[in-house]
Computed example of a mutant assay.
Amino acid sequence: MLPYQPRGLKYFLRTKEEMKQTIETIMKRESTDIITLDFLMVIAPTEQAQKVLKHVLRVRSQTNEQLKQLYYEITGEILGVDQETFNRPDDFTSGIQEQIELQNIRVRRLENLHQQSISAQIGQQRVSYVMYEEKRILGRLKFLVE
Rank of each mutant, 00 (worst) to 15 (best):
Met1His: 11
Leu2Ile: 03
Leu2Thr: 03
Pro3His: 06
Tyr4Glu: 14
Tyr4Leu: 15
Gln5Phe: 13
Pro6Ile: 03
Arg7Glu: 07
Gly8Asp: 10
Gly8Cys: 01
Lys10Tyr: 03
Phe12Ile: 04
Leu13Val: 12
Lys16Trp: 01
Lys20Met: 03
Gln21Leu: 15
Glu24Lys: 15
Thr25Ser: 14
Ile26Glu: 05
Met27Glu: 12
Arg29Glu: 14
Arg29Leu: 07
Ile34Ser: 09
Ile35Gln: 13
Asp38Gly: 13
Leu40His: 06
Leu40Phe: 07
Met41Cys: 12
Gln50His: 05
Lys51Ala: 11
His55Pro: 00
Val56Met: 07
Leu57Pro: 05
Leu57Met: 14
Gln62His: 07
Gln62Trp: 04
Asn64Ile: 01
Glu65Gly: 05
Leu67Trp: 08
Leu67Cys: 04
Leu67Met: 11
Tyr72Cys: 11
Tyr72Met: 14
Glu73Gly: 03
Glu73Pro: 00
Ile74Val: 15
Gly76Phe: 04
Glu77Tyr: 09
Glu77Ser: 07
Ile78Asn: 10
Ile78Trp: 06
Leu79Arg: 10
Gly80Asp: 09
Gly80Thr: 11
Asp82Lys: 13
Glu84Met: 08
Thr85Val: 11
Arg88Tyr: 08
Pro89Ala: 04
Phe92Gly: 10
Phe92Gln: 06
Thr93Trp: 07
Thr93Phe: 14
Gly95Tyr: 04
Ile96Gly: 02
Ile96Gln: 03
Gln97Tyr: 02
Gln99Asp: 02
Gln99Ser: 14
Gln99Tyr: 00
Ile100Met: 00
Leu102Glu: 10
Gln103Arg: 03
Asn104Pro: 00
Asn104His: 04
Arg109Met: 15
Arg109Asn: 15
Leu110Pro: 02
Glu111Ser: 07
Leu113Val: 04
Leu113Gln: 06
Leu113Ile: 09
Leu113Trp: 03
Gln115Lys: 15
Ser117Glu: 07
Ser119Ala: 14
Ala120Asn: 07
Gln121Arg: 15
Gln121Tyr: 09
Val130Pro: 02
Val130Lys: 06
Glu133Met: 11
Glu134Trp: 00
Lys135Gly: 02
Lys135Gln: 13
Arg136Val: 12
Arg136Cys: 01
Leu138Glu: 05
Leu138Ser: 03
Arg140Gln: 15
Phe143Arg: 06
Val145Arg: 00
Glu146Met: 13
Glu146His: 10
